[in-house]
Design a protein around this nucleic acid. Structure first.
Lengths: 221, 221
DNA sequence: GCAAAAGTGTTGTGATTACACCCATGT
DNA sequence: ACATGGGTGTAATCACAACACTTTTGC
């Protein structure tokens, strides 16, 4: 009883913006328990493996995401209810990671067991306590949106202010005033104009921005 | 290798304001490793015990805090570096808890292995990675100060606006303008006046306030 | 020229700060 | 009376929202 055995896992909430909505990558389970249910990608932590290392490994192996090194990855919360897994006592350290839409879209196309689901409307019951994990991820993301440059992790390298505003609206669930949003963002020093413009628009093309170099490795919990 | 054995512990950062500074309760270690070092109170999680339950148990057993039921207790972060404990692989779920000064002062008086240390100046090396855990707790506390009624957990039931301002200044490390702070707090609906006044002051006694009833069980991560 | 969205100027409002001042209490 | 901190009024500042407007592109 002095130090009973546990299994420790990581579960990953991989998010992006798809069709204007915050979405998460789900994996269809092939084994018991919860066979056929959608679940978050996850895996057991190795005895000599750090928690962040395990999360990055699951990112590349289980979800087939090459860009695992550069993605925004952040520990979220640890779920340890004794009944959360019917097989044994498992403590799961949940992470969330953010990607541009193209990265997750490609993963979904190449892997039939993966799909994207809308975070605010899951549409089906999930395996284990994964619905609660997703809710926690959404909450954290919403909370950090205003004071951290977290939204850029959901966009490609070049983006317009309209793209950025769409990300903010999808996460916060509110409409934002366009001129106010513009000036607020331009006042943060988080973005810099490239001089380039988008193309193939049936209207005036917007300027393309990129995330400023000095916020590239920004964090803060 | 599919699910290797881990030990899971909880470590607790128990904080209060002592002499105008944010302070944490430390316990002197009697056993190896790190014998004689100061460490955070902590303990192994039972196989059938929830994480929050384990944290509350350590609160009452190891630190002898009767008010464990009512204290503000919140999961902080999970530390799982493979080398963080020389004996074996231990994943530790860190919590922080907040108390009025009198509660921790009494615990320190009754237990010679306990003492209070200033969070911003620990003064000595700590066991394991506990300095990093304390830093994370301080950061979380600072971040939540402005948008959550978390400061009241560090004060007794009745307090003056000066007391509350001292708490904010101790946590944020900045001086705050008095009238501005007053009006901001009175505008939140987090506190209500009692009509009573402090006594035994060599100057004009300030009004005593209490935390409003409807924020008693407030949370949000 | 027209439609559609980019991008800017102007004004108003609410929150917060700074500073000055008055008030109440113990000695 | 006076020292000390409690408490309030007022004006300035800042961030942001609302709204109207001009600009630039494809068709």
């Amino acid at each position: 009883m002095s130090h009973p055995p546990f299994a420790v896992t990581v579960d990953l909430v991989l998010m992006t913006i798809a069709d204007g909505a915050l979405s998460a990558l789900m994996q269809r389970r092939a084994e018991e328990p919860f066979t056929g249910y959608s679940a978050l990608p996850g895996g057991f932590v190795g005895v000599d493996e750090g928690l962040d290392d395990a999360a990055r490994r699951v990112l590349t192996d289980k979800a087939g995401l090459a860009g695992g090194d550069s993605a925004w990855l952040e520990q979220l919360f640890t779920f340890g209810d004794p009944q959360r897994d019917p097989r044994m006592r498992i403590v799961s350290v949940a992470y969330f990671a953010l990607f541009p839409h193209a990265v997750l879209a490609e993963a979904v196309l190449s892997r039939p067991d993966l799909r994207l689901t809308t975070v605010s409307n899951l549409g089906e019951p999930l395996a284990f306590d994964h619905a609660a994990i997703i809710a926690a991820a959404h909450g954290r993301l919403k909370g950090k949106l205003d004071y951290s440059p977290i939204a850029f992790a959901l966009l490609p390298e070049l983006f317009t202010l309209r793209d950025l505003q769409a990300v903010h609206e999808a996460i916060s669930g509110t409409k934002i005033n366009k001129p106010a949003f513009r000036r607020r963002m331009l006042g943060t020093n988080w973005i810099e104009p490239t001089g380039q413009r988008e193309s193939d628009t049936p209207f005036r093309p917007a300027e393309l921005y990129r995330k400023s170099a000095h916020v590239a490795d920004w964090r803060a919990d």
